[in-house]
Design a protein around this nucleic acid. Structure first.
Length: 680
DNA sequence: GCAAGGTC
């Protein structure tokens, strides 16, 4: 090794500090500052190490070319091309100055594909990859970091190549298809409109659009339930005894029941059940829980969690892990939190109930770089605002609850039957021993008492009634459940999912009605154009393909150039064809949705462009579904066409377009073509 | 101006 110090590149300031502390021995690490950027000096193995942070990616891809297809791009400092990344300039400046006197470079960024790229780009541009090493640690603990530095590895070229390929592939697909959409609109209208598409945002848009469509086109089917009220021990209980597709069958059953007004106790059981404590939070679980309890959007929750992290109150929040490893000193965190009044009693309880043996209940999900979200034990210095307080409290309680004893609930269930008709269950629940629920009360189950019954006994029926229920449309997405969907299918990352959902709103593809996510005209149009001309972007299959190819690069079964050239070939073919044959059609579709082009004929119901029979494609589809479902409705409810339309028009469960279509025909006093006579 | 990814 030559003269000069070792420059250690960390992914972020927090990580740089932890690495410095881990390497420091006796004398400790010296904190220095250049402007607002901290770095550390420490002697390790008798040699000066300077540990300086990046701030995530400091370089990004750009191009000088306009239009599409565009296949030439190059790396530049991020601050030059991204207004939101102006802070990265100072980080890069400091690394650049420190690099001039360094003899050796170590990439000590997170040990994942992006961390490999972050450190590599810095060393390549301001240092020297010929004098560079990789430190590989799976957690930022003293033990792991020191082990990594005792035996540094050569630069991890396979990871770097895979990471660079990820950037290039996303850039090629995203920039080209986005430009194709925008240029199509420009061609037809002469207007510049910002549109976008990408490997993650587009499948998410398609999912939201198809859910919206299923809801708006839902034709509910009726079911007829026999409801009974029984009286036991002076209290009444009501339940559904049987449900029938046809009204006549339900009426007959109700009639029989009215004649023989008893139910027989078929079964009665009481038992205890353990409620296992929850796992500590990963970001997705935190976002879902904050949405459920406080109505917060995932982006908002993430922003608050990031603030708490920067204030040192919680661990790194952008994690997928539901595990707290043994290296986290949970006992001293708990002791420290006990200094806060609101947690003192709970922690006393926790220590007593576990005899001081604190072990979190870890979940299955993992993260290569970070543990589950947990409080650090540092206490808030000033007052937290309301949202910070709520999120902090949620995280603290979840963390403590994950180490608490299981809860115990007493359950009871009874089955009451009318022979030949059906049976109904009564379910009771009582919290016997709250356990972790004392701490994480947000999950407390609803208590319900039922009478103790003797099997074989008879229970008098007080009341019999017929109720109609209807099949429901699928649940609408909320921002939080859309983020959960992305997590489930494995697209985006902890850091980007909420942001990408917000982006779809910014683009005007989605809109919110309360918590409900709906697709806009533009969202439908973009989804339609992508499905037709760039079908790869409509499903998560592209991500799966990327993963396969990147894995091949890592395993040296393929090279980056080869993989990127494959993608370019596919894109070139598609983009050239789009340009030659489809620009005008696609541009018209988008322009109409944007309201930039007036449709030739308008839908008599909604004013959108009519495609046939004076109806737009949505209402045309709605009419088709009404016609298809009418036969089944008549069989079940015995209604004529007019009553059928009236029922549909008045049902909340019916989709908006279906209701509008039904109303339209009612006003017209006619049935949709293909249906029976209106008066039938 | 456009992606997805990192982080202040």
């Amino acid at each position: 090794m030559g003269r000069g110090y070792v420059l250690v590149v960390a992914e972020k300031p927090k990580a740089a500090r932890k690495i410095a502390e881990a390497l420091a021995d006796g004398s400790g690490a010296r904190l220095c500052r250049s402007g607002r950027i901290p770095f550390w000096m420490v002697y390790w193995a008798g040699r000066l190490h300077v540990i300086a942070p990046a701030a995530g990616h400091l370089y990004g891809l750009t191009t000088d070319e306009h239009g599409f297809p565009v296949f030439s791009y190059y790396w530049v400092p991020l601050w030059r091309i991204d207004r939101g990344a102006s802070h990265t300039r100072q980080f890069l400046d400091v690394l650049g100055r420190l690099a001039t006197s360094a003899a050796i470079f170590v990439n000590a960024c997170d040990y994942d594909i992006e961390g490999s790229v972050i450190g590599y780009m810095v060393i390549k541009n301001v240092g020297d990859v010929g004098r560079a090493y990789r430190a590989k640690f799976s957690a930022l603990t003293r033990q792991d970091v020191r082990r990594a530095f005792r035996k540094l590895d050569p630069l991890d070229w396979d990871m770097i190549e895979a990471g660079l390929a990820r950037h290039e592939l996303d850039w090629l697909w995203g920039i080209n298809v986005s430009r194709a959409l925008m240029d199509a609109v420009k061609l037809v209208t002469g207007r510049r409109v910002v549109l976008s598409a990408g490997r993650v945002q587009s499948p998410t848009l398609i999912e939201a659009v198809s859910r919206d469509k299923e809801i708006k086109l839902h034709v509910p089917l009726p079911r007829f339930a026999v409801r009974v009220t029984v009286e036991v021990g002076g209290r009444s209980y009501t339940g559904t005894l049987a449900a029938y597709e046809e009204r006549r069958a339900a009426e007959a059953a109700a009639e029989r029941l009215r004649r023989n007004r008893v139910l027989r106790v078929e079964h009665y059981r009481e038992w205890m059940e353990r409620l296992q404590p929850p796992y500590p939070f990963n970001l997705g679980d935190l976002q879902a829980e904050a949405a459920r309890l406080f109505g917060y959007s995932p982006m908002f929750t993430q922003k608050i969690a990031e603030q708490l992290y920067l204030e040192g109150l919680i661990s790194y929040p952008r994690t997928n892990s539901q595990k707290i490893p043994p290296t986290v000193d949970v006992a001293s965190i708990a002791r420290s939190l006990a200094r806060l009044n609101e947690y003192r009693e709970l922690i006393d309880y926790l220590l007593k109930a576990t005899r001081g043996l604190l072990r979190p209940r870890n979940g299955p999900k993992d993260d290569p770089a970070h543990p589950a979200i947990h409080p650090t034990g540092e206490l808030p210095r000033g007052a937290l605002d309301k949202a910070e307080r709520r999120i902090y409290d949620l995280i603290v309680r979840r963390f403590l609850a994950s180490m608490a004893p299981a809860g115990v609930v007493a359950k009871a269930s009874a089955r009451l039957a009318a022979p030949g008709i059906g049976s109904m269950e009564l379910a009771g629940l009582r919290v016997e021993e709250p356990g972790w629920l004392r701490i994480y009360y947000f999950a407390a189950p609803e208590e319900k008492a039922i009478p103790r019954l003797k099997p074989g006994g008879l229970v008098p029926v007080k009341r019999v009634s017929l109720s109609i229920s209807y099949t429901s449309p699928p649940e609408p997405y909320s921002k939080a459940s859309l983020v959960k969907w992305m997590e489930r299918v494995g697209i985006g990352t902890e850091a980007t999912r909420a942001r990408i959902v917000e982006l779809l709103f910014e683009r005007g593809y989605l809109e919110a009605r309360g918590r409900r996510v709906e697709a806009t005209e533009l969202g439908y149009a973009v989804a339609g154009v992508l499905s037709k001309y760039f079908p790869q972007l409509t499903s998560v299959a592209l991500t799966r393909h990327f993963e396969e190819r990147l894995e091949a690069i890592r395993a040296r079964r393929a090279g980056r150039r080869e993989v990127v050239e494959e993608a370019k070939a596919v894109l070139r073919e598609m983009l050239e064809r789009f340009k030659a044959e489809a620009m005008r059609d696609a541009g018209m579709e988008l322009a109409k949705a944007l309201g930039l082009v007036r449709p030739a004929r308008r839908c008599v119901i909604c004013g959108r462009e009519a495609v046939a029979d004076g109806l737009c494609s949505f209402h045309l589809e709605a009419v088709k579904r009404l016609v298809n479902m009418y036969g089944e409705w008549r069989r079940r409810a015995g209604l004529g066409c007019r009553k059928f339309l009236e029922s549909i028009a008045g049902l909340r469960a019916a989709g908006q377009w279906v209701r509008e279509a039904a109303e339209y025909f009612m006003k017209k006093g006619a049935c949709p073509p293909g249906l029976a006579e209106y008066e039938a």
